[in-house]
C-alpha cells in the first residue's frame, strides 16, 4: 500500500502535525533527542505520505515492502507519530516513550514495527541498506531501498565503503537521503570536519545526486518521486538541506542543539495547549 496525500496542503498539514507531536513526545520524554528529530520531519512525511514507500502497516516485514532504513536513530523520534498514525502500532504507545512496558525508546530499535535495523550506532544503515539492495536485485525484486542518514554520521568511514560498493555494483534501487542539518553533537560540521560540496563528492563517487530544501515537503516529495523512477545504473542521493531544531527558538541552528532540551514551558507555549502534559 502506498499512502499519497491528495494535495500539497495536506502534506504540509501532516508535517506540522508530526512536528508538534514530536515536540509533545519530547515534552513527556526529555531523554529523546529533539533537535535532530525536527530537521527530518518533512523527509519522513514525504517518504511515508508522499506516495513513495510501499508499506504494510499490519505486516511491516511483508516481502513486497520498500525497505526504509533509518540510520540516524536518535534523530528519528518524529517517526513515532508517523508510524502510529499509519497504523504500525497503537497511538497510545506515544504516551509511553522511554517508559517501562513501552517499546518506543530514546533510540528506536527493530522491535518497533516499521523499523528495519538496529539504529543509533551511526554509520551502519547505508552499508546494511547496500546489502539489502544487492539482495533485492538478486531476487529480481521491484522493491526499493531508502536509507536516511544525518550528515554528521557521514564522518564514519563505513559509509564511504558502502558508497563505493553501491556505485560499483550499479545499485539503482538504493536511495540515500541525507538530513543535512550541518550540526553534529558538539558543533557545526564545518568546524569539525567539513562536508563541503557533499553532492559533488557523492557525484564523484558515481552517484546520481540532487540537493533540495529539506523543509519544503513538496520539493522533497518531487525529488523522491523523480529519483525513484530513475534507473540508470547509479545509486541515488538526495541532500536535503535542513535546520537542526527547526522551528524552536533557542534551539534552531544552535551549535549545541543536539544536546539542548527546550524548556517544558516553551514547548507548552509552542504547542498552544496542554498536550505536552
Amino acid at each position: 500500500m502506498k499512502k499519497e496525500m491528495q494535495t500539497s496542503e495536506m502534506l504540509k498539514d501532516k508535517a506540522e502535525w508530526v512536528w508538534k507531536e514530536t515536540l509533545a513526545i519530547h515534552r513527556r520524554a526529555p531523554e529523546t533527542r529533539i533537535a535532530s528529530s525536527l530537521s527530518c520531519v518533512e523527509i519522513f512525511v514525504a517518504l511515508y505520505y508522499g506516495g513513495i514507500l510501499e508499506i504494510f502497516p499490519e505486516q511491516p516485514l511483508s516481502e513486497g515492502r520498500d525497505r526504509c532504513i533509518i540510520s540516524k536513530g536518535h534523530g528519528s523520534i518524529c517517526m513515532y507519530p508517523i508510524l502510529a498514525d499509519l497504523g504500525f502500532f497503537a497511538m497510545d504507545e506515544l504516551n509511553k516513550v522511554c517508559e517501562s512496558g513501552g517499546f518506543l525508546g530514546g533510540i528506536p530499535d527493530p522491535v518497533i514495527p516499521g523499523y528495519e535495523t538496529v539504529n543509533g550506532s551511526l554509520g551502519h544503515g547505508l552499508g546494511v541498506g547496500t546489502g539489502v539492495a544487492l539482495g533485492l536485485k538478486n531476487k529480481n525484486s521491484p522493491n526499493q531501498v531508502y536509507v536516511v542518514t544525518g550528515d554528521g554520521e557521514l564522518h564514519e568511514g563505513s559509509n564511504w565503503e558502502a558508497i563505493m560498493f553501491a556505485s560499483h555494483h550499479k545499485l539503482d534501487n538504493l536511495h540515500l537521503i541525507v538530513d543535512n542539518n550541518k550540526i553534529s553533537m558538539l558543533d557545526h560540521t564545518d568546524n569539525i570536519v567539513s562536508h563541503d560540496a557533499l553532492a559533488k563528492r557523492l557525484s564523484a563517487f558515481g552517484w546520481h545526486c540532487e540537493e533540495v530544501d529539506g523543509h519544503d515537503v513538496e520539493a522533497v516529495q518531487l525529488a523522491l518521486q523523480k529519483m525513484s523512477k530513475l534507473h540508470e545504473g547509479k545509486p541515488k542521493a538526495i541532500i536535503a538541506n535542513t535546520v537542526k531544531g527547526k522551528g524552536v527558538p533557542g534551539l534552531a541552528n544552535e551549535s549545541l542543539a543536539h544536546i539542548l532540551n527546550p524548556k517544558p514551558e516553551l514547548i507548552d507555549q509552542i504547542l498552544g495547549d496542554n498536550r505536552g502534559n
Partner: peptide, 18 residues
C-alpha cells in the same frame, strides 16, 4: 567488497535479512 571489512559485515547483514 574490496579491502573493506566494515562493509563486508554490513553487506552480509543486509543480504541475510533478505
Amino acid at each position: 567488497v574490496g579491502i573493506a571489512e566494515q562493509n563486508l559485515i554490513n553487506v552480509a547483514a543486509g543480504l541475510a535479512t533478505e
